[in-house]
Structure formats: C-alpha cells, structure tokens
C-alpha cells in the first residue's frame, strides 16, 4: 500500500563556477529560470570544497580562466576523477577549440554562449 503523501521532486542541483560576479549571477539566473537549483563558487578551489560537502550536485558549469591556480580544465579533470557521475560543461572566452584537452563526457562552449544552447545541453546531460 502506498502512502498518500506526494513529495515534491527537488530540482537537480547545478554548481556554477565563475570568477566574474556579473557572469556568475547571469549563469545562476539562467539555470534557475530553466528550473534547476543553482549554487555558485568563485573559483575551482571553492568548487571542490562544495563538491566535497554536498552529494546532490548533478552538473558543474565552469569557466576556464579562474584565479587561485586551478583552472576550469583542471577542475573538470578532478571531477571526472573523483566524482565520475557529475556532468561537466566548460565555457571559455580564452579557448576556441580545446581539442583533446577536455575530459571525456564533458561539453565545451565558447563565451559568449547562447543561453538556450546551454539549457538544452544541461537537460540532455541530465536526462
């Protein structure tokens, strides 16, 4: 016999890693407007701390050039190594074609990106 209580399904959590505050806010709005829950980090080190403390993050949307040493490419590699189920989307204004630099099952877009394209990719990766 099933319970009569209907629990609302929590939206997937997406971690946004971006050092530029304005772009970070825009990315948060983009993700939230698309129906996901967004949390943000200003650099890769902060992102790793968040990933270590939370188990509900499904996807990371990260910039490449960030302060404090670790860039988005390295962060993607760390995620692939330590948290394989988490999907990663990398965005960069610095690299046009990452070639073989990006880890497997990681999407890449150049900045400025088409917002709809990012939303569709998030949905496709989380489907």
């Amino acid at each position: 016999m099933t319970s009569g209580i209907i629990r609302p399904i929590a939206p997937p959590v997406i971690l946004i890693v971006e050092d530029e505050p304005l772009l970070r806010l825009a990315a948060i709005d983009l993700v939230e407007d698309a129906g996901f829950q967004a949390i943000a980090a200003a650099d890769a080190t902060e992102a790793v701390t968040i990933l270590e403390s939370r188990y509900d993050i499904r996807l990371v949307l990260t910039d490449v050039d960030m302060p404090r040493g670790v860039d988005g490419m390295r962060l993607a590699a760390i995620i692939r190594d330590r948290w394989p189920p988490i999907k990663v989307i990398i965005v960069s204004g610095h690299i046009d074609d990452p070639g073989g630099q990006i880890p497997a099952e990681t999407a890449f877009y150049t900045k400025p990106y088409r917002e709809q394209q990012i939303v569709e990719k998030i949905r496709e990766m989380l489907a």
């Binding site: 530029e20 772009l23 825009a26 204004g93 400025p112 917002e115």
Partner: peptide
Amino acid sequence: KNTLAMVQAVVS
C-alpha cells in the same frame, strides 16, 4: 569575448 559575455549578461 569576456567583454561580450559581460555585455550579454548586462542585456539579459
């Protein structure tokens, strides 16, 4: 590209 991304963010 970063400036364009900022402009995009300002507009959106």
